[in-house]
Computed example of a mutant assay.
Amino acid sequence: MNVWSNEKYCDLANLILGAVLVLSPWIFGFAAGIPSQNAWITGIVIAILSVAALAAFAQWEEWLNLVAGLWAIVSPWLLGFQGTTAMTVHVVIGILVVALAAAELWLRYQNPPRLTAGS
């Protein structure tokens, strides 16, 4: 029986956030160029890592999602689109992705998987 755990719900939420970031240039009317390209690339990375984590959990996926979320937070300043709607979207989604990835890592360390005989 395939039971969804809290970790899977975090991965699903990150998948949705990645999709929102990919679609955000159209939803929020970003200017063409660096803000849109960054949203597409970062959103795709977050979504792919989330799909990989849903398929088979590995801690490296959560660490990379944490890094991708941090990139979304700092990229407006590093790429020069601060003070825009694109910045707000990147920062909010980045904070949510970081929080979910950190929560998932915390859950994993609090409740490590148990090995049972015969499984």
Rank of each mutant, 00 (worst) to 15 (best):
M1R: 07
M1D: 11
N2M: 11
V3F: 06
Y9P: 06
C10M: 13
C10A: 15
A13D: 10
A13E: 11
N14P: 06
N14K: 12
L15C: 11
L15N: 13
I16H: 00
G18D: 03
L21A: 09
L21T: 14
L23F: 04
L23H: 01
S24V: 00
W26N: 01
A32D: 10
S36P: 00
A39M: 01
A39Y: 01
A39W: 01
W40G: 03
T42L: 10
G43D: 08
A47Q: 02
I48M: 09
L49Q: 03
L49D: 04
S50L: 07
V51M: 13
A52T: 08
A52Y: 10
A52E: 10
A53D: 15
A53E: 13
A53G: 09
E62I: 06
W63T: 15
L64A: 15
N65F: 04
L66R: 03
V67G: 03
A68Y: 03
G69T: 05
A72V: 11
S75L: 07
W77Q: 10
W77G: 12
A86F: 04
V91P: 05
I95L: 13
L96F: 02
A102G: 13
A102P: 02
L105T: 00
L105C: 00
R108Q: 12
Y109S: 13
P112I: 10
R114C: 03
L115N: 11
L115T: 15
A117W: 11
G118Y: 03
